[in-house]
Structures are given as structure tokens and as C-alpha cells.
């Protein structure tokens, strides 16, 4: 497939964050989160997105065929989004993987080792409390990864595309994380909500 055939759909969450759904996988080894240009070194896609002029990108998260970009600039997504699209196509056309594999764990505080420990605690919380709760609405929340103390989740079943998914994420899951695993710094939803085929609550215009 030529990169010109690659389909990219932008889904702005707000003026600071936007998800880009790509028809081709960008990274098959779980999730990678980059919070600085330094962390992006060796991953051409993330390097290119951090280098977009005027965007002031602060975070790039790549999972399978989904790229989440967080920016500080007030520049509108139509401008920044097109540059992100170009970066995605260029990365797919390049000779090396768009995103490098996750580096091996080190013992530095706040590093992958600490994230691994956090992952275990968050996974326990998801198994024991979060998933039994969302299961009552036919939902499921998958813990994808913990990087730099930021939890990445993917919603499925009744949660995927649900009109109240953001309430579940912020008022439910994030609140529980603050209570039970206060070391967690944030939570990122990498769900493709547009693909949800059985949302528990579907929206209507009013």
C-alpha cells in the first residue's frame, strides 16, 4: 500500500489534545508515550511530531494505529493536524519503524522499573474493582501500559463509544486511581470510540 492510500482521521478532544486514527499500524509493541523531544529520539514519528513548528507539542502517545498528540499552542488543529498527518505518512514511508521499541527497564527512580511496580498495582485495582464496576454496563477497561506514571487504558464493550465514557474515565477510574494509587500522575484513554458498535449510552442532539 502506498502512503497516499493511508487513511488518517483526526478526532480533536479539545484544543489541546487530538487523536489520529490511522488505517495502518504504526507500532505493534504495546504503547509508547513520549513526553519530551529527548524521549522521542530514535522514533521518527515522535521526533517529527515534536518538531512541528509552532505547535509546542508536549506529549505523543502511539498505540497500534492510534496517535494521540497533546500540544500547548493555541494553534488550531486544522493547521497542526495536517502537519501531524504529514509526519505519520513520512514515518510510514521511511525505512525504519515509526516508533522504536520500549527501552529495557533500568533502576533509576521514576523509570520503567517504577512504572512496572505501578502497573502491577493498577492492574490489581482494575481486576478487583474497576472492571467489575464497568461490567455492570457491559463494559471493559483494558490496562495497556504505565509510562512515566501515566496510565494508558483502552475501553471496550459498552464503554467503547459510550456517551458517558469520559465521565467513567475522569469521575470513576481516575478518581479511584487518585485514591488507591496516588503516585499515578494521569490517565490517557487511547480508545477508538468511533468504532464502538454497542455503546451503553448513545447520544442524541438536544
Amino acid at each position: 500500500m502506498s502512503v497516499t492510500d493511508v487513511r488518517i482521521t483526526a478526532e480533536p478532544i479539545d484544543n489541546g489534545r487530538c487523536k489520529f486514527l490511522v488505517s495502518e499500524p504504526l507500532h505493534v509493541g504495546g504503547v509508547r508515550r513520549f513526553a519530551t523531544p529527548d524521549e522521542a529520539r530514535g522514533s521518527p514519528l515522535a521526533e517529527a511530531i515534536f518538531a512541528i513548528p509552532g505547535a509546542d507539542v508536549s506529549e505523543v502517545i502511539v498505540s497500534a494505529n492510534l496517535v494521540t498528540v497533546v500540544k500547548r499552542s493555541p494553534a488550531p488543529w486544522p493547521v497542526v493536524g495536517k502537519a501531524v498527518g504529514q509526519a505519520i505518512r513520512a514515518a510510514l514511508a521511511g525505512g525504519q519503524p515509526p516508533v522504536a521499541s520500549k527501552p529495557a527497564a533500568t533502576s533509576t527512580p521514576g523509570s520503567a522499573t517504577a512504572d512496572d511496580a505501578l502497573y502491577e498495582r493498577v492492574a490489581d485495582l482494575f481486576d478487583s474493582q474497576v472492571n467489575p464496576m464497568v461490567a455492570r454496563h457491559g463494559g471493559r477497561v483494558e490496562l495497556i501500559d504505565v509510562q512515566d506514571a501515566v496510565v494508558m487504558v483502552r475501553m471496550a464493550g459498552g464503554c467503547q463509544g459510550c456517551g458517558m465514557a469520559d465521565v467513567t474515565l475522569r469521575q470513576g477510574i481516575e478518581a479511584m486511581l487518585q485514591q488507591y494509587v496516588p503516585e499515578v500522575k494521569g490517565i490517557v484513554d487511547i480508545t477508538d470510540h468511533a468504532a464502538g458498535s454497542n455503546p451503553y449510552f448513545a447520544a442524541a442532539k438536544k
Binding site: D14, G16, G163, D166, A203, A204
Partner: peptide, 23 residues
């Protein structure tokens, strides 16, 4: 006040977060 069928959930929740408001 968010009815379960509203389209407005993300816009309002994220706006409140940006403002540092308890919701």
C-alpha cells in the same frame, strides 16, 4: 447536569479540568 444521552460530556468535563474545577 449531564443526561446520559448528551453529546456534551467530553466538552464540559475537559473544560472543567482545564479550569481546575472540582466536578
Amino acid at each position: 447536569l449531564l443526561p446520559t444521552v448528551t453529546y456534551r460530556t467530553v466538552a464540559f468535563i475537559e473544560a472543567a479540568r482545564r479550569l481546575g474545577v472540582a466536578v
